[in-house]
């Protein structure tokens, strides 16, 4: 079994190749858009592994939440590849990916959502299922992020640094702000999902934005005294 994984939900883009449990991964060079670097990186990685597009059994991608454009770069490329190769897709959440990277049993993932908000995920590691979200992923103000119940939680993600008040409120826990979504974890979680039979037809795979209110309707603007 071979699974290609793409992850571009933050500036730190990466790709990985899972071959029956063996992992290869590569990071996009910093400072350039993922659109310029991701596919060449994949091609290089496949060549180095002696693999190729035709050898892939499925493609996993980071479905978010994260930067909207980044989510669509990974998803769009993955969709194009999946249709071309007639293979299924494995969408993997960024908050779950961060929890897998952290390695602990119980993890709170906090990803900077910009605009003064935080993507929040309450994660638990299960033997066969990988990471399970205990609640629907949230979009919260930093002040509204709940304190974990108990001491044995790891807190991970760049929101800890982006919102210093949030970082200090959670300072009593094991905090790891440097942990970001990585393709290697997308690949491993994707492999578990594939084993569970959760592969999706590419027409059904889509980004998970979490921030779903992105514009106001004419009616909403008028209700606030705005212009039509």
């Amino acid at each position: 079994m071979q699974i290609l994984a793409l992850e571009t939900s933050t500036d730190a883009g990466s790709c990985a190749l899972w071959q029956d449990g063996q992992l290869l991964s590569a990071s996009c060079p910093a400072g350039r858009p993922h659109s310029e670097t991701l596919i060449p990186l994949v091609q290089q990685m496949l060549a180095e592994a002696g693999s190729g597009f035709a050898c892939l059994d499925a493609i996993a991608f980071g479905m978010g939440p994260g930067a909207f454009t980044g989510l669509r770069v990974a998803c769009g490329i993955a969709q194009g590849m999946a249709v071309a190769l007639d293979r299924p897709l494995l969408p993997v959440g960024s908050l779950e990916t961060m929890a897998w990277e952290a390695g602990g049993q119980r993890v709170v993932s906090l990803l900077d959502a910009r605009m003064g908000e935080v993507y929040w995920g309450l994660c638990e590691r299960h033997a066969d299922e990988g990471i399970v979200l205990l609640e629907e992923p949230g979009l919260l103000l930093p002040d509204a992020v709940p304190l974990p119940s108990g001491e044995d939680w790891q807190i991970v993600g760049n929101a800890l640094q982006a919102y210093p008040a949030l970082g200090s409120r959670l300072a009593a826990w094991d905090c790891q702000p440097q942990i970001l979504p990585q393709a290697r974890s997308v690949a491993e979680l994707g492999a578990l999902a594939l084993a569970r039979g959760e592969a999706l037809d590419p027409a059904l795979a889509a980004p998970r934005y979490v921030r779903n209110k992105v514009a106001r309707t004419t009616a909403e603007r008028l209700a606030d005294g705005g212009r039509p």
Partner: peptide, 18 residues
């Protein structure tokens, strides 16, 4: 920009693997 990028990413993924 965002709309263009969707068609672009899809086309590039498709073409690269074909």
């Amino acid at each position: 920009a965002g709309a263009l990028l969707v068609g672009c990413a899809f086309a590039e993924g498709l073409a690269a693997s074909l």
